[in-house]
Design a protein around this nucleic acid. Structure first.
Lengths: 224, 224
DNA sequence: ACCGATTTGTGCAAACCTTCACAAGGTCCT
DNA sequence: AGGACCTTGTGAAGGTTTGCACAAATCGGT
């Protein structure tokens, strides 16, 4: 039985909390692989990923049984396995809409290509941005969205527009066939139930930190 | 008793899940305030923030009882209350370390200033970046960190360096007195227990979306 | 061939979070 | 003043997530 055919591991059965940690494990595995070692224990991988080892073992048990008792996990096998579950064995084309400061930063961010993603198309609506070239990719007008999305087989998009434009962009993306959206605009998107949206709001992250700062300064007595 | 003195609401008692949603509520309140209305029901605010109304009421109940039965919540009062709990009544100065593409985008991101934060200082280590000016702020050398942090009263920092430099930067930040860190570098940071770290990894978000794409394409039969 | 050391996979209990459903309290119209 | 209507705040139920603790499995040395 070749490694490439995963046994069972129905993707529907993997808990959300686990899914959100799999990419971290994958990244830790890549880092470990560079050091040349071939296997790693749950404890070792847990430390590298910054989690509890029992949690890690339970997470991995949802994908099937790929460890060896007394030894640990084969790094190559586990890497393949997680990549498979996450659907990263096939290269995924991503569209980016909104080529402002943040959009330009993301378009130039090397971290994507390294990890199975490629920005396949850039879109904007401002006349002075459409037609320019960024990182070797032309910035296209939003009107070409449907055409390009189907031509390139794009199913994931990133929105980095101002909040007022985001809903309209999301509507266009959904109409063009995109079914997963990463939204950096600070607003709630209304999409059909079959479309997944993840939101990243930089200001929200800072506000959460502010809360912890505030709590710390309020009661300097309580340790940790 | 003036509104500005919060009744009880011990910050230690507010669940993490609630804290992470308070900024969303605050943002929704700001948006609603702009429409001119004075009060909003839990249902109305819940829709604006994209959550279930029962959850919203339970969240708000952790801060105290600021709604009026039969009417709803006074937008101004609730805004003040949440800002207070999050510690946003005092302006918080933020240091940003690593002025690459992403760092430049964040430094120029208007969303921070609007919401109680100001980037107070920029740091880098590359000779050709130190000394340049970005958005009116000079880029300083990392060696000046301790001095500037204490002079400006900075307690929150954002790391947007390459992963290999991140741990060293975090160590410097902790030594300089920073107690909250927002980390964009794809790596685990080791810090003392009294320092809070939040991590944002753009590739991880895409990988989570990839999983859902993969799941959707695997079984096209299951609806929703 | 056996024994001790090591490490996985998992049953279980506790902690945490979400959602329902409704009593308590408040407004507004007549 | 009274009753119909609305909305909050919360008890209780159900679900998910975490972390412990240990049996089962494997390896290496003698």
């Amino acid at each position: 039985m070749p490694t490439e055919l995963p046994a069972g591991a129905d993707p529907r059965d993997i808990p959300d909390a686990t899914v959100s940690r799999l990419p971290e494990y994958l990244h830790a595995l890549h880092t470990l692989a560079e050091t040349g070692i071939a296997t790693v224990s749950s404890e070792g991988l847990a430390v590298a990923a910054g989690v509890n080892s029992a949690k890690l073992r339970k997470d991995l048990s949802h994908l099937g049984s790929y460890g060896i008792r007394g030894v640990g996990y084969d790094i190559a096998v586990l890497t393949t396995q997680i990549s498979d579950v996450l659907g990263l064995r096939q290269h995924r084309a991503v569209a980016l809409v909104g080529v402002g400061h943040l959009g330009q930063a993301l378009a130039g961010y090397g971290g994507f290509a390294n990890r199975g993603f490629g920005i396949a198309a850039l879109f904007d609506i401002a006349e002075d941005r459409v037609g320019t070239v960024l990182n070797g990719l032309p910035v296209r007008h939003l009107d070409e969205l449907a055409e390009v999305v189907s031509a390139e087989g794009i199913s994931i998009a990133v929105i980095t527009t101002p909040p007022l434009a985001a809903q309209r962009v999301a509507d266009s993306l959904v109409r063009a066939g995109v079914t997963s959206i990463l939204n950096f605009a600070p607003c709630v998107l209304d999409v059909p139930g079959n479309v997944d949206v993840r939101k990243v709001d930089l200001a929200v992250e800072l506000q959460i930190l502010s809360f912890h700062e505030h709590r710390k300064s309020r009661n300097g007595k309580v340790a940790t």
